[in-house]
Design a protein around this nucleic acid. Structure first.
Lengths: 191, 191
DNA sequence: TGATTAATTGACTCGTCAGTCAATGGATTG
DNA sequence: CAATCCATTGACTGACGAGTCAATTAATCA
């Protein structure tokens, strides 16, 4: 039904905000429900239990990311242009908004023990990787795979460091480092 | 006193094991105490509260890492040799033992809200960075700083990806990628 | 309208857990 | 030996939270 979808969305949004506010998955379903302006029982009605709510939230975040990256690639055909767009998307404002950072960190933790979270994360990694490889291949041939692994790792690592350093506000330097790495990798090909 | 230090050590070791077993900081002080073979009250006696116990555990892990890296650098004077040792240390078996992975992930989460955890993490980052810069400077001059940032980020990112992918057992490929990145960075200097 | 179905509530249960504390036991010391 | 101090226990409390459920309200529809 329409109402059901709307409620789910609202509860997921509230979950992200609440996780963001607390920094942890140690948030109560009551807090989330309160933030969404509904009774606690409703969250259980729609999601069954807390973990399902978290997983639905993770799926939502990954979906949003997927939509964003596709949007940013529209009309871009040059490999370098596409690579730049992909790498920049990971540091776009939406990735730092509200509780996105907290959600990501906690989902990493969750992925250790929840097979479903693990699956979602692996899916995200695979997509990211093949996105990169697709545009790297024409530039780097067989080296594309290795370069993509390094760029992917670098993005995760710099995102992590950036997100945890509260003195940083503007992710510009992090993006610059990633793009520099791309440049370095490409220039090393002709060595 | 002697007994006090011993108990603290035992409780910290038990904390790492317990976090490793659960994957989360959602472990009870009672579980930890039980694993250490003492009564729950004793943990509070020595650490005051749960967060202090976690912070002490984090300090212990960072100290162990520091000792390890210093040991691995002994006798190495060539810059590339030192860089290799530093990078490899981050993927040495001890970094994957027991609950080390879980501890790291959860301390990232904790760092969002605990100023002390934040401080410890920043300290670790600074030390790691200056270790790298020290050996990169003779090879790369002013580029040393940028290269160190990228290598540092890459290490964190690949560690994360490796640690979360249960199908991986041997961290060899991750190390190889990091060393390859170093090679690429150095070769790009003469371009 | 009246009847059927879906949405929503919030009080309640049952378990759990952080942290306290009074009591016990064991050393150490004078 | 007596007195003092430290280590240690584990029962206890007070609070809180996940999940249930019977009851209420709103929407749908024939």
């Amino acid at each position: 039904m329409k109402a059901e979808q709307k409620r789910r969305q609202e509860l997921i949004a509230a979950t992200i905000r609440e996780i963001g506010a607390e920094g942890t998955l140690n948030v109560t379903v009551s807090q989330i429900a309160k933030r969404a302006g509904v009774s606690p029982g409703l969250a259980f009605h729609y999601f069954g239990d807390k973990e399902q709510l978290f997983l639905a939230t993770m799926r939502s975040i990954l979906r949003t990311y997927g939509v964003l990256i596709r949007a940013n690639l529209v009309g871009k055909t040059e490999p370098v242009e596409r690579l730049t767009a992909i790498l920049e998307t990971n540091f776009s404002p939406s990735q730092f908004e509200d509780g996105a950072v907290a959600a990501w960190l906690n989902f990493y933790v969750l992925a250790q023990t929840s097979p479903e979270a693990q699956r979602l994360l692996a899916l995200y990694h695979r997509r990211f990787h093949s996105n990169l490889v697709y545009s790297l291949r024409p530039l780097a041939g067989d080296a594309a795979h290795g370069i993509a692994e390094r760029l992917g790792g670098l993005v995760d690592g710099l995102y992590l460091r950036f997100a945890l350093n509260r003195s940083h506000v503007d992710p510009g330097p992090a993006v610059a480092q990633v793009l520099k790495a791309l440049e370095v990798e490409l220039s090393a090909l002709d060595g």
